[in-house]
Amino acid sequence: MVNVLLEVENITVHYGKSIAIQDVSLEVAEGSVVSIIGANGAGKSTILRALSGLTPLTSGEIRFAGSRINGKSATEIVTLGIVHIPEGRHLFPYLSVLSNLKLGASLRKDKAGINKDLEEVYKLFPILRGRRNQKAGTLSGGEQQMLAIGRGLMAKPKLLLMDEPSVGLAPIVIEQLGEVIKDINKRGVSVLLVEQNVHLALGVASMGYALQVGRVVLQGDIATIRSSNIVKKAYLGG
């Protein structure tokens, strides 16, 4: 049996008085890619924000590698190895590509390890090496997404949370993105992917969850998800 890395148990989150997600439970097994699909406003991003400590829970519990992490600060959560690549990337636009990458390693002290991982990121995204002295804000959309992922990897994550990485990218770049996610996963990083692009989401994951107005309406392995009527109707065009 594979170890469960992340367990989310019945979490509920409010924004002010309105409910964003309700009684959501999910699991990510060590070494797997799990996708959450759902329409805009279904609460997908809220789950990730709750996981990375940006948004407090109303109730429920989150366990990572067996120990409770809800209530911990964003800094502590990054230290534990959960790294969140947010929707919209949130790069530092006036800093160089290299500075952005190094800031991804803000909490690490091992200089040699940081340099080694920098090389790894450059190997994964050769374009970033060429642009390392360019300001992040001047990169193209696809390059910015690569940089955001690279910056996330610099923290040496055990679990990578990716929020809508495909937004605004050309279809060919989205295909590359799928390969990158698989590649990252092969290196031993588990991935929790939130996507509206169902083809990408189902193409890379082994498990999936479908979210509708703040609740999980469907879960299971990828074949189950793909064959379910809800997903077929809503996303796959029949």
Partner: peptide
Amino acid sequence: TKWGQQMQAISQDLEGAYLQGIN
């Protein structure tokens, strides 16, 4: 310096800074 870079990061994108674990 690292701290100086973190200061700039916070001023350019606060949420991005939180997510890098910057205190």
